[in-house]
Design a binder for these strands. Sequence first.
DNA 1: CGTTGAAGTCAGGGTCTTGCATGTTACCTT
DNA 2: AAGGTAACATGCAAGACCCTGACTTCAACG
Lengths: 178, 178
Amino acid sequence: MISSTQTNHPLVDAANATKAQEPLSLACAHLKSAGLRITQPRIAILTALIKSGQPTSIEQIHATLPAGSCDLVTVYRCMGAFEEIGLVRRSFYHNGTSLYTVSLGESNSYHVVCKNTNRLEALDEGTINELRRCVQQVESILRSRGYDDVSHVVEFFGVAPAPSRANQDASAIVTSAS
Amino acid sequence: MISSTQTNHPLVDAANATKAQEPLSLACAHLKSAGLRITQPRIAILTALIKSGQPTSIEQIHATLPAGSCDLVTVYRCMGAFEEIGLVRRSFYHNGTSLYTVSLGESNSYHVVCKNTNRLEALDEGTINELRRCVQQVESILRSRGYDDVSHVVEFFGVAPAPSRANQDASAIVTSAS
DNA sequence: CGTTGAAGTCAGGGTCTTGCATGTTACCTT
DNA sequence: AAGGTAACATGCAAGACCCTGACTTCAACG
């Protein structure tokens, strides 16, 4: 239910990496270099995650997957593994449910989550950049203090303005992973 | 069964706020002004929270309470209510478990949580201030966008340096509530 | 002293984890 | 290039953990 609209570009499926849609290839390379195997379910999950482009819950990912292409438990385990190798970043809804976003080199994006609807909306560029700078500084301080495997979670919550919500959709919230 | 240690000061109850050890009084005033009742369990919970001084899980709070002074469910409900009126801020462990800190006017503090031990350590003053400034700016932008009841969660995680951990203890992680 | 919010109790939901048998991948041999 | 094999990954079932609701009983506060 995601992207019929977004995905009708020419080269969209897995194997053929031309140059535009290679995020999947990148992700697979990441998997390989981390010593993880590239399996059907993992490809399906990563594809869904990439297509989504925003923090997505495990349930959502699972629901998106073709049919019974992959067990829910597998999605949990994969996300856990992906997070460990830094392939995805974790964030949360206000209720604590985990959300995941692929992390392929590009810089983090930060978002606001509506406390009522869990809808996501992006922050503006400038703000994101400043936040990022600030957060990275903290992380480097931590590393210099001896902390390992540093990551962070930065999320904003609020009740979105009810009336004017039709125009702008989801976006995201958080982030993690140094 | 509330505060034998903290509360044995002369004026400990709500109304008469002298100036030193009044956090409990302040908290009660906050409750009152929000239209919530000041009950035994709530006082116990707030006392525990104040004494702890750092993000604490609901389980921990409940374990701290005297004996069967208050049901676990009640702690959950109270924390929910307290969060709603801004009396406490919420944060999370890396696994998503909620933590709470009393929020009595003083400014937020930010922290690092060890991914392995869940131990907390404070960030340094300067960093905290910069983070705070940045975060507050984001929140004011959100409010101007029409968001209501704005809050945030900012947490840093990492694996703490194993050897040199004895000297420095817990601190906290997060925060929330505009 | 009465109203009404809050606590206690019990049951249930959602999210995530574990254990074990089976299936697949990736490597190594021929 | 084909086949064999060890190890990792998956599916399935059960269950742990954290949190929320419904309902009755209790107590705060006017």
